[in-house]
Nucleic acid binder design. Structure first.
Lengths: 139, 139
DNA sequence: GTCGAATTTTAGCCAACGCTAAAATTTTTT
DNA sequence: AAAAAATTTTAGCGTTGGCTAAAATTCGAC
């Protein structure tokens, strides 16, 4: 183990980072669900995330107040333009991380799980290196 | 962008994962602080994590109830054997992730930040690949 | 030893995310 | 159309982690 190490960690991701991660996960899931089955409801997300529909409801309220999601009472969920853009960025990032792990030699199941966790913590610079590595490995 | 992708995400990390991450970060920081300046106080952690000492105090209470930290009133913090083991595992994992990012060609500052975020989400299998890659790149 | 500074502890507030129970609404079945 | 099923909403509670203010204790200087 080296010596230099990464001392003096800038500081741990704060509570507001968690809010962002949640927003990203939900927006990404909404986009994918709409893509696959044309509508997305609260129940769909509850099933995907294994939480109660009530929890989803409250998170959706927050995302709505942040301008990422639109919805009328008792109607299915929609993304705002801003929500769509976020979903697209997240999907791309997610895919790059996943392909990178595969290129590294990680098995599909593990890569899928780890990508889920890692994606939110990859800076643009690192993401670019991930992409290059995967391309180089594949090509 | 590929097609297969990582569909049907197992499900997002739950709230209890965050508790674990916090525990890991704190235990790791306590161990390092003790290593560097022989004692670790609540204030030290507050400074490192940029949160109030009151927040640290409450988190330490929890870690104590979980058997990771020991402390007597107004005294510095100590790790239990279990806390020490956790700190050692986390430090090792952190170091592997950091060295891996460096081996990939990420600059030190970015690698330090990203390692902080990524370390909690790397499975044992992936960690091992990270280690192999870094060794191979260096060797 | 006393006083002042630093540190820790307690009290009390807020937000996010987890839950169950129950009410309201929509959809489907009969 | 009425009844049943599914879905969404509201109400209310618990935990974690964020804060400030103020009290208690320890430590250092004098």
């Amino acid at each position: 183990m080296s010596k230099a190490s990464s001392k003096s960690a800038p500081h741990r991701r704060t509570r507001s980072d968690h809010r962002t991660e949640t927003a990203e996960d939900y927006v990404e899931a909404i986009a994918q669900t709409i893509r696959e089955q044309s509508v997305c409801r609260i129940t769909d997300l509850a099933r995907q995330f294994s939480v109660s529909h009530v929890t989803v409801h409250r998170i959706i309220e927050r995302l709505q107040s942040e301008g990422l999601v639109e919805t009328e009472p008792y109607k299915p969920l929609r993304l705002t333009p801003s929500g769509e853009r976020l979903a697209t960025r997240c999907r791309r990032r997610h895919e790059i991380v996943y392909q990178f792990l595969l290129a590294l030699g990680i098995d599909q199941a593990t890569a899928a799980i780890d990508a889920e966790g890692i994606e939110h913590h990859v800076s643009p610079a690192t993401l670019q290196r991930f992409e290059e590595f995967a391309r180089q490995q594949r090509g």
